[in-house]
Amino acid sequence: MTTAAGSVSTAQYFVAYPHQYHFIVDQPNRCQQESPFLVLMVPVAPHNREARDIIRNTWGKETTVLGRVVSHYFLLGLSREGDGTELPEEQVLQESQRHQDILQSNFMDNYSNLTIKTMVMFEWLSSHCPNTTYAMKVDSDMFLNVHKLVDMLLKSPRHLYMTGMVARGAAVLRDRNSKWFLPVSAFPETSYPPYALGLGYVFSLDLPKKILQASFHVKAVYIEDVNLTYQ
């Protein structure tokens, strides 16, 4: 999209956050009741039941590791546009009733809204997991060594802590054909501050509230892992 003067419009590179999103499928009490040491949050498309089942049958099966409780949740948006008051699709609702691990919010689930998905994740963790020490956002196509992760976290700081594969000095892509293009008008610097790649990162549970507070003072860009450098 361009303006009449030919410059790139920035609107399409930002997402609607903060915003009053709500969950149409939720597990409102499970995290508080289980008080897990570690919560694994897996963003996944609503239609991708196969990925969810693979995780449930592999590393998602590990619920107690080195004496610590570990739980997982799948985070979904909507599969189609609507007015924000949609009921969940029957298949998703049945899956949720069976496995008790689905969280579905009322934003459109697509690549451009991954930042919204991430921020909604922070909202849910902040309000539902008061006794949890760590959480990890991990993509559904990753294979996670949960035993090694818990072993590492038992020796890690419990406050103001975040770790993952860190990108340092990453260039801001100005090629308009790139999937991750940002114009100068949206992000004037030529490189990003260090940030943890979105494929997977771990954080202590005091961080979600701080990140959410910071989000009220910045405009959220559509590149979800980069967006966390703003917070």
Score class of each variant (00 low, 15 high):
residue 184 V to P: 07
residue 66 L to S: 14
residue 32 Q to V: 09
residue 179 K to H: 14
residue 230 Y to I: 10
residue 205 L to M: 15
residue 175 D to N: 15
residue 48 N to Y: 07
residue 153 L to F: 11
residue 175 D to V: 00
residue 58 T to R: 07
residue 57 N to I: 00
residue 176 R to C: 05
residue 196 A to M: 04
residue 30 R to V: 10
residue 72 H to F: 10
residue 220 A to P: 05
residue 198 G to I: 02
residue 103 L to G: 03
residue 35 S to N: 14
residue 68 R to P: 01
residue 28 P to Q: 01
residue 24 I to C: 00
residue 43 P to S: 05
residue 108 M to R: 06
residue 91 Q to N: 10
residue 33 Q to I: 01
residue 152 M to Y: 01
residue 171 A to E: 13
residue 89 E to T: 08
residue 217 H to W: 03
residue 63 T to Q: 02
residue 184 V to K: 15
residue 207 L to R: 11
residue 2 T to D: 14
residue 42 V to A: 08
residue 124 W to K: 15
residue 2 T to V: 11
residue 116 I to F: 02
residue 143 F to C: 12
residue 85 T to A: 12
residue 42 V to T: 12
residue 170 A to G: 03
residue 56 R to L: 12
residue 99 H to M: 07
residue 132 T to I: 00
residue 193 P to V: 09
residue 164 G to R: 06
residue 183 P to E: 03
residue 100 Q to I: 11
residue 3 T to C: 09
residue 179 K to N: 12
residue 6 G to V: 13
residue 117 K to M: 15
residue 116 I to G: 07
residue 188 P to W: 04
residue 63 T to A: 06
residue 104 Q to M: 09
residue 81 E to A: 09
residue 99 H to A: 05
residue 76 L to W: 11
residue 208 P to Y: 12
residue 95 E to H: 01
residue 183 P to N: 08
residue 124 W to N: 06
residue 3 T to N: 10
residue 13 Y to N: 08
residue 22 H to D: 12
residue 45 A to L: 15
residue 180 W to G: 13
residue 155 K to G: 00
residue 9 S to K: 08
residue 69 V to H: 12
residue 65 V to H: 04
residue 230 Y to D: 02
residue 17 Y to F: 14
residue 180 W to L: 02
residue 125 L to S: 08
residue 225 D to R: 09
residue 56 R to C: 06
residue 216 F to N: 14
residue 171 A to M: 09
residue 99 H to L: 06
residue 19 H to K: 01
residue 110 N to L: 11
residue 32 Q to I: 05
